[in-house]
């Protein structure tokens, strides 16, 4: 599976955006969160997790370390809203295509 992720390309990566995913990376690291973006240069993923205190925890998983990506669920409209308004996203960058 290694390298498969890096070779998917933008049209494939963008289909994972706004979905909750589980990423296995390195030997035994596992991260879960809502996918914000994938860097088309390094294939690195950015995941966010909303916490109860209103803050967000952000994970960046390096593309070269990705072993497996698994979709857990789609975002409901409330989650989509929170993702769209998160401070780590540019204001003009909606996902229309």
């Amino acid at each position: 599976m290694q390298d498969a992720w890096s070779h998917l390309g933008p049209l494939q990566w963008i289909r994972f955006v706004n979905k909750q995913i589980k990423v296995t990376a390195g030997k035994d690291e596992e991260r879960r969160g809502w996918l914000v973006t994938v860097d088309p240069v390094s294939a690195s993923l950015v995941l966010v997790d909303f916490r109860e205190d209103g803050k967000m925890s952000v994970d960046m998983v390096m593309g070269h370390a990705v072993e497996e990506v698994q979709v857990l669920q789609e975002a409901d409209s409330e989650t989509l809203d929170r993702l769209q308004n998160s401070l780590i996203l540019p204001k003009t960058c909606s996902l229309d295509a």
């Binding site: 088309p40 996203l89 540019p90 960058c93």
Partner: peptide
């Protein structure tokens, strides 16, 4: 473009 702009912003 969308993916890269979002990533750079992060």
């Amino acid at each position: 473009t969308t993916l890269r702009e979002r990533f750079l912003h992060c």
